[in-house]
Amino acid sequence: MLDDPRLAPRSGNKATSLVVLLHGYGADGRDLIDLGEYWAPLLPDAAFASPHAPEPLAIAPVGRQWFGYTERDDRERWIGVQSANAALDGFLDAELARLDLPGGRLALVGFSQGTMMALHTGLRRKVAPAGIVGFSGIHVLPPAAGIDAFDAEITSRPPILLIHGDADAVVAPDYLPRAVESLQARGMNVRAHMTRGLGHGIDRTGLTLAGNFLQEVLD
């Protein structure tokens, strides 16, 4: 079972929703948990959890990974999101049960490799999350021969917000329109924002857009 930093609701009340923050390659749950502090005024009754990815980083003595990288291609990413799906899905179930919340009161927020996991696992939940936010990520697709099985696995279609920087040198900005096209083709309601001059990161504009989106879908 994954472990994580957590934040209780700012209001002091019982949580009415859960926002799970999924970090990028080489970071850990502590990297994103401060987003919960930033959004807490908008979501005072939300609990936040930022799980550490299940694997130690393969190329350094510190940090975590949802899956390993060597080739950084579509095939490797597809194998990776599949391998990490069960651990994340189980964590989401356990955290919702701990807070006594239904699956529809869950929102997922990912950064980079965490966005890949948020989209992969979120669209396969038995109960659709309230929404998914993805920063600087990729909607991972299988090889062409596996598209039919891929489509059959999609069980939920939550609203989605994707944010990317047009100066991202780690995950190319072209992945944003590709994600929008593939998700819309599968019946998703997708909003997208490309931030001028932003590299591989999250800026204040993205934080504001994401916070407003989360407030909307969890209201």
Rank of each mutant, 00 (worst) to 15 (best):
D3A: 09
R10C: 02
S11W: 07
K14V: 12
S17M: 10
L21I: 01
L22R: 01
H23Y: 07
G26M: 11
G29I: 02
G29D: 01
I33Q: 10
L35A: 14
W39K: 09
P41W: 07
P41I: 02
L42M: 00
A46V: 04
A47Q: 04
A49L: 03
S50D: 00
H52C: 01
I59N: 14
I59D: 10
A60T: 12
A60G: 11
W66G: 07
E71G: 15
R72A: 15
D74H: 06
R75A: 14
R75E: 12
Q82L: 12
S83R: 15
S83T: 11
A84H: 05
D89L: 11
G90D: 06
F91W: 08
L96I: 03
A118Q: 06
L119R: 02
L123N: 09
R124S: 08
A128V: 04
P129Y: 06
G134M: 00
A145M: 07
A145E: 11
G146E: 13
A149T: 12
F150C: 10
F150H: 03
E153F: 00
I154P: 03
T155F: 04
R157A: 07
R157P: 10
I160F: 05
I163M: 13
I163W: 12
D168M: 10
D168S: 14
V171P: 08
Y175S: 09
A179K: 09
E181S: 15
M188I: 06
V190D: 03
R191T: 11
R191K: 13
R191S: 15
H193E: 15
H193K: 10
M194Y: 14
L198P: 13
G199Y: 13
I202A: 07
R204W: 12
T205V: 14
G211N: 03
E216G: 03
E216C: 11
